[in-house]
Nucleic acid binder design. Structure first.
Lengths: 214, 214
DNA sequence: ATTATCTATAGATCTATAGATAATGC
DNA sequence: ATTATCTATAGATCTATAGATAATGC
């Protein structure tokens, strides 16, 4: 009998029951994410992952084929979470002229809440095999894409000065990275700013950045 | 007889001749940096480092006490290089009103040249033991400090609108990170921009960011 | 004699799997 | 009978060191 891919991922498994696969993999991801954040990918052993997930090392390997599979599952989970966070944030914005301010605020708050996850992506993406690393980067792009759309909408409605697509995308990347900056420079920033202060000041900067482009 | 620290670092060595220590450690750093960039810290073995440096595994351990020592030496080397690059860039600026534009340009070019190194710092700093990680972060801060001084100078001379110290430092961090962004989003940016284009557009954005703060 | 280097390997992992056992459903 | 899980371990590392050897300087 052939190996049967789970519905949600492309990782082969020996286990037939797809619901069980999903459930167990959720356990694996939850346990592994915590361990990777605390110790890093390489210092975490497959045994630790299995134990933290609540089953044996043998069972772990029924649901993944390698340790790297686990890392990929974790990265995918993180992006899903971040994307969900961003989508939720977009819905919460009330619309109108202040949309950009609200979007920045909500996006930065997502970065704040998911600080550890985002940091993990920055640090461990390289440990993934090529194809999967590419997919992680595409996910990154998808999240930036949400920001691009918001900006494009504001340009269309005349609330932002028009600019060409490339510049618009770069602004989106800048916003995205300034959000991440809160995670990877927190050791410095948190000494001077609360997240609210940080958002306020950076929002001013970002607005200035765009306003000037006439 | 006691272990004797080398002149340049705090890492103990069994070897008495300080010049030799410096020379061998330079070999180690050069070899290890290449390997870490290509394979990552954890996938590189001490044997590979020794071989690439041109001596045996036994000798390697005369100059360092652990694999992590090697990583620290590499990180320190990278910061020295980047700091040197930035310092050189500062000297090359001609002064006057356009200083900021030039400084941004030179700094971004340093990031461009040292792309691989900077990426390595982002990815492997966490693998360092606590004390050294802290030192790496201090070095990071020192480099940002150079930008702070340039900005402060421009504010003092009236070429930039005055702003409080905290904002000024945040601008410096933003510039610093937007430089790094070229290294860790290169997979995307290089599809749309040459480094010169990137510098041009980001410079406009940064100027806008500051100009607006009156 | 002292310093630097090398070879050989101890000791400690860690990933992944084979084969045995338990649980489930016909 | 089939599916899921567990235990035990093969096999493959890898770091760090001990002890032997070579080179240098008195």
């Amino acid at each position: 009998m052939h190996e049967q891919p789970s519905r949600t991922h492309d990782i082969p498994t020996q286990v037939k029951n797809p619901d069980l696969v999903d459930r167990r993999r959720r356990q694996i991801v939850e346990a592994a994410a915590k361990l990777f954040i605390a110790q890093g990918f390489h210092k975490t052993t497959t045994r630790q992952i299995a134990r933290a997930a609540g089953f044996s090392i043998g069972s772990l390997y029924e649901y993944v084929t390698s340790k790297e599979d686990v890392l990929y599952l974790v990265c995918e989970f993180i992006h899903t979470e971040v994307a969900r966070g961003v989508a939720g944030a977009m819905q919460r914005t009330t619309g109108g002229k202040e949309v950009l301010v609200e979007v920045i605020r909500e996006y930065f708050l997502v970065c704040h809440r998911m600080s550890d996850f985002i940091l993990l992506i920055y640090q461990e993406t390289r440990s993934l095999p090529g194809v999967w690393r590419k997919r992680v980067l595409e996910n990154e792009l998808r999240i930036t894409g949400v920001l691009v759309e918001v900006l494009a909408g504001l340009v269309a409605s005349g609330d932002l000065p028009s600019m060409n697509n490339e510049k618009l995308e770069l602004v989106a990347h800048n916003i995205s990275v300034l959000g991440h900056m809160w995670t990877f420079r927190r050791w410095y920033l948190a000494r001077h700013y609360s997240i609210d202060d940080y958002i306020r000041v950076q929002t001013d900067f970002i607005i200035g950045m765009i306003a000037r482009q006439v």
